[in-house]
């Protein structure tokens, strides 16, 4: 086993443990915890047996396994950015609703001359 593999397994193991612990403390929904767990396990599998990524890459018409992983990482990042942006927009509009509600509760009449 290479040094890279050992350090990657340590990191991925910790990440998986953290994910499971979040789920157990009900700080993550099952869906979210499951998706992250899949990601960590998938990464571990790809690092343990790199030839699997090569085979999948060939099926998709990509020359190297490393390229496949790279493309997937970029794609995943875009999906992540978009999800965060959607959530950000939703929070913005919720914030507007709160700010509006507060303003409407407390109208200030004109100062008497």
């Amino acid at each position: 086993m290479t040094t890279f593999q050992i350090s990657a397994f340590v990191f991925l193991g910790l990440a998986l443990a953290a994910t499971i612990s979040f789920r157990l403390r009900r700080q993550a929904s099952f869906r979210v915890a499951f998706a992250w767990s899949l990601l960590w396990i998938g990464a571990a599998v790809a690092i343990a047996w790199p030839q699997i990524t090569v085979r999948v890459a060939h099926v998709l018409g990509i020359a190297r396994g490393a390229d496949l992983v790279f493309y997937l990482a970029i794609l995943g990042m875009f999906v992540g950015f978009f999800a965060v942006y959607v959530r950000f927009r939703r929070m913005e509009s919720e914030m507007t609703r709160i700010v509006r509600e507060l303003a409407l509760r407390n109208p200030k009449e004109p100062d008497p001359e």
């Binding site: 507007t96 700010v99 509006r100 507060l102 303003a103 407390n106 200030k108 004109p110 100062d111």
Partner: peptide, 19 residues
Amino acid sequence: ARQSGATVLRHAVNRGQGA
């Protein structure tokens, strides 16, 4: 605005003209 005779509603933080 109040001194000039308007009723004033205040957004606690800036939310934009549409809001």
